[in-house]
Computed example of a mutant assay.
Amino acid sequence: MKKTQAILLQALLSSTLAASTCLAVAQQGPAAPVITIYTAGSMSGALGAITRQYTRETGQPIQLVSGPAGALLDRIEHSAKADIFVSANMAHPQRLTAEGKAAPTVVFARNRVCVAARPDVGVTTGNLLDKLLDPNIKIGTSTPKSDPGGDYAWELFAKAGALRPGATQTLEAKAQQLVGGAVAPQVPAGQNPVKYFMATRRVDVFIGYCSSHEPTPDTTLTQVELPPELAISADYGMTVLDSQRNAATRDAVYRLALYLMSPAAQSVLTRYGFTAVAPQ
């Protein structure tokens, strides 16, 4: 764990269980309060597995609310009830920390940006930029500002422009913002949006994350790593929201937050394509 991460985590610890120095997970009673986690949609699969594991071990009920992290931040700032916030970037939870609405923000996990494509498109790491700039290739992205995934796509476009003059403007003009926005195209219930837009030929490639919602990667699409000159990493931030809680609820929230940083929880992240930050 990097020094800055260790300092942030220490600050989180010191601001939490003031009356308790035990970091072990305690069993919850039958009347344990429900803990609500607001989480970036890309983390919902892994975090769902972790919290189900925690509930089995402790009996602690947990509610996950997932969606675009920017939209979740807006809800929290407008008084939505959340105990823990996990974002696909550091900026959103750090904003809550700076506003005095949350504890120090820590790096919860790391991710990378990848490009998903139908196999027939023939995208590889070596030809990725050529394919993205091909006028016949349709590009899908998340929505910038509302969803960090969209912000990372625009960061990729900026890097492309540094390599090839005019590429940034070309890619921004081609990109279809299909998920994560306030208004998004309809997707049939139960279907994965990216797979649906690929299958219906609305897009040929989609710029997203290397992680997955399932521990078994989807082999129906090709996932391509970005070349080194275009590579983008994504740090996921976590913070505990300040709210009017009794002592028992406060301790329960912080016990869960500490568990999320434990090797037992972090080992689950790797099965979903994330990079853990806690020692394994």
Rank of each mutant, 00 (worst) to 15 (best):
Q5P: 02
Q5R: 13
A6W: 10
L8T: 08
L9E: 14
L12I: 12
S15E: 15
A18L: 15
A24C: 14
A24N: 10
Q27M: 11
G29Y: 05
P30A: 14
I35Q: 02
T36C: 07
A40Q: 02
G41S: 13
M43S: 11
S44D: 08
G45N: 09
G45M: 06
A46D: 04
L47F: 07
G48R: 08
A49M: 10
R52K: 15
R52V: 03
T58S: 14
G59H: 10
L64W: 10
P68E: 06
L73A: 08
E77L: 12
V86Q: 06
A88M: 12
P93N: 07
R95V: 03
L96T: 09
T97A: 15
A103Y: 14
R110D: 04
V115L: 04
V121R: 05
V123I: 10
V123Q: 03
N127M: 09
L132P: 08
P135Q: 04
N136P: 04
N136K: 14
N136I: 02
I137L: 10
I137Q: 02
K138W: 00
I139T: 10
I139Y: 08
T143Q: 06
T143A: 03
A158F: 04
G166W: 04
Q169T: 11
T170E: 12
L171N: 02
Q176Y: 00
Q176N: 05
G180V: 02
G181M: 06
V183G: 00
V194Y: 01
K195V: 05
A199D: 14
R202S: 03
V205H: 05
I207V: 15
C210V: 08
S211C: 11
S212K: 01
H213T: 06
T216Y: 02
P217T: 01
P228E: 13
S233N: 12
A234C: 12
D242F: 13
D242H: 15
A248P: 04
T249A: 13
R255Q: 15
L256P: 09
A257N: 09
Y259R: 01
P263I: 09
A264V: 11
A265V: 06
Q266C: 07
T270S: 12
Y272N: 04
F274C: 01
T275P: 03
A278N: 03
A278G: 05
A278V: 08
